[in-house]
């Protein structure tokens, strides 16, 4: 392989793409090509810290002020898995309630009329929990829905 062919092959490579074996062998054996490829590789790394144009003054303070002024909602730090886990736990508790000794005791004292309000309260609790989840995850749910729509 000639030097100019090896260099041309090297220059055509995409970022993170490795040269063909014969090119690598040539570069390994040829001092000039080794120097030139290193020169290009190091230049590419150096360039990544730059830009074509420069702002006259930084804007990060303006941006951070604007973000503060917008009073962005508190970012979520509880994973969806944890939300789901607690939801299942609440549901399991509701299902387990009729088998609870204390409820049997209350039913004995207040009669069958106790059950309906009790079920309503429990239903409201799980509904409220679901509403809070949806309200705090609107974007995520929207994205998931659009993702499945595209499929």
């Amino acid at each position: 392989m000639k030097c100019n062919e090896a260099i041309e092959h090297f220059l055509k490579l995409d970022r993170y793409e490795k040269p063909a074996v014969k090119v690598r062998i040539h570069i390994f054996l040829c001092k000039d090509c080794r120097r030139e490829t290193r020169l290009v590789a190091e230049s590419l790394i150096a360039l990544q810290t730059g830009s074509s144009f420069k702002l006259e003054s930084g804007i990060s303070n303006n941006i951070m002020e604007a973000i503060g002024a917008e009073q962005c909602p508190q970012r979520r730090d509880v994973s969806s898995f944890k939300w789901l886990f607690v939801w299942v736990l609440i549901l399991a508790s509701i299902i387990a309630v009729p088998y609870n000794k204390q409820l049997g005791f209350l039913r004995m004292h207040f009669g069958v009329n106790f059950e309906l309000p009790f079920v309503i309260v429990m239903g409201l609790a799980i509904t409220l929990y679901s509403v809070i989840y949806i309200a705090t995850h609107v974007e995520e749910i929207k994205n998931s829905v659009s993702f499945y729509d595209k499929k």
């Binding site: 420069k54 702002l55 804007i59």
Partner: peptide, 9 residues
């Protein structure tokens, strides 16, 4: 912002 302001600009 500090890392990318000039690139985005």
């Amino acid at each position: 912002v500090d890392r990318y302001e000039n690139k985005i600009f």
